[in-house]
Amino acid sequence: MISFKNITLKVHRQTLFDDVSLQVADGDKVAVRGASGSGKSSLLKCAVGALPVAGGSIRIDHLVLSADTVAEVRARIAFIGQEPVLGAENVRDALLLPFHFKAHSDNKPSEGRIAQLLERLHLSSDILEKPCKRISGGEKQRIAILRALLLDKTIFLADEVTSALDPESKAAVMAELFRPEITLLSVSHDPGWIKACNRIIEISNHQLTESVTDPQIGNQKSAIKNRSTGGAP
């Protein structure tokens, strides 16, 4: 469960969110949309304590995000950025990177598990020995997702993670992240991805507006427009 309560967020003295709240229940698949610069990525970042909020509180499951809990919160959440950083020389080292940290050093995955996940994400096992600099953007995105899956996390914050993927790879990624036990808060422009989400949140005028579900993309836009005009002060 992810809960944002009365969050005010300022980045470089610019207000991105003004007293907004959002509840994401276990198993929810939420897509966040909005104009560029509206704060979609920042919303995800503040949930993992990567950006300081000016007001309000954030809760992940039973943990209220604070200096004392931030490590545990980060341990529960898989955060996959728009341009994921692998942080190692080659792909195998990148996948095993978190297991070098004390927090995960006891849960090192088996070769079999890695091979199985590679296959599920449509990646060849040759990729393990490749330098991270030499793999494509789409492969990087899937490696970052695979790494999060190896950590057995159930809360995923995903920022445009299918932007560089072909349709087959995208389907493979969605099959993993839309499993019922996974709670997903995502930023996406991809119609297929948004359609698969059970909730859609629109960011406009520093506020979050929940859109009607099960939408035809065209109708939905107008529904949100009406709402935000109606709600404007």
């Binding site: 990567a50 980060r74 341009e83 950083v85 990177l97 940290f101 790494r147």
Partner: peptide
Amino acid sequence: KNENEFMTYLMLGATLRE
């Protein structure tokens, strides 16, 4: 300069020292 990389380490469970 590598803030994204540094934050990635933290997100992957690293302590500040790590």
